[in-house]
Simulated assay, not measured.
Amino acid sequence: MGDVPGTDEISQKGFSLPEALIAAFLLSVSILGLLNYYQSLTYGFMRQWQVQQAWSEAHSQLEAYAATGRSHETVMKGWEYQLSEISAGQSCQRVNVVIRSPAKYQAILQRLICKSGG
């Protein structure tokens, strides 16, 4: 009478230790893959932003030089710029602007600026 009927047929529910370890491993590999993708995506966006900023700054430098005869000093921290003038005739100059981003992307623009004689 002390025997409980069906005790030898009790089935356990849940995961075994190897199954749980495999699931944890797959989850960690998936998370590492997503983090790597996020890092690549972030780097790509940063690089694209720097490219856009470099071209915008180069254009701005040329516009300032054409209007005032000198460049303006608004290049962001960590960025480098170089402006050079080359005589191209009696009243014309070829102005070159080189902007380098912190990621070493380089934007180069040139403009021919001629003073109208009156």
Rank of each mutant, 00 (worst) to 15 (best):
Q93V: 01
N36H: 02
Y105M: 14
S30V: 09
L32I: 09
W49F: 12
Y105R: 14
Q93L: 06
D8E: 13
L41Y: 04
F45A: 15
Y37C: 13
Y81P: 00
H59R: 11
G117H: 07
G89V: 09
Q39F: 04
G69T: 08
K115L: 15
H72W: 01
V95N: 00
G2Y: 08
A67D: 13
E85M: 07
V98S: 10
E57F: 07
M76V: 12
R70Q: 14
N96C: 07
Y105D: 14
R111Y: 02
P102C: 03
N36F: 05
A23L: 12
L17G: 04
Y65A: 11
S91I: 10
G117D: 11
E80C: 00
E73K: 07
S116F: 07
L112W: 07
L112C: 00
S84N: 08
C92I: 04
E85Q: 13
A64S: 05
Y81F: 12
G117N: 11
L17D: 00
L17Y: 09
G89R: 03
Y37L: 14
W55C: 06
L83Q: 09
G6S: 10
P5K: 11
Y105K: 13
V95W: 01
A88E: 05
A20F: 07
L17I: 10
Q39S: 09
S116K: 13
I108K: 10
H72C: 07
E73R: 05
S28H: 06
Y38H: 13
Y65D: 04
F15T: 13
V97L: 08
Q110F: 02
K115H: 10
Q53F: 08
Q12H: 11
T74C: 02
L21P: 04
S56D: 06
S116A: 13
A54F: 01
E9R: 15
S91N: 14
V95T: 01
T42N: 08
L112M: 07
S91R: 08
Q50I: 01
L35M: 15
F45I: 15
E19D: 02
G44W: 01
I113A: 01
I10C: 07
R94D: 00
D3E: 10
P18N: 04
L41F: 10
S56N: 08
R111S: 09
A20G: 07
Q110R: 01
G117E: 14
R70W: 05
K104V: 13
W55L: 15
K104T: 07
S60A: 15
P18G: 05
P18K: 00
D8N: 06
G118N: 13
L21E: 02
A23N: 04
L83D: 02
S16N: 09
Y37W: 12
L21S: 02
E73T: 01
E85K: 08
Q61V: 02
G33C: 00
R47V: 14
R111Q: 08
S101V: 03
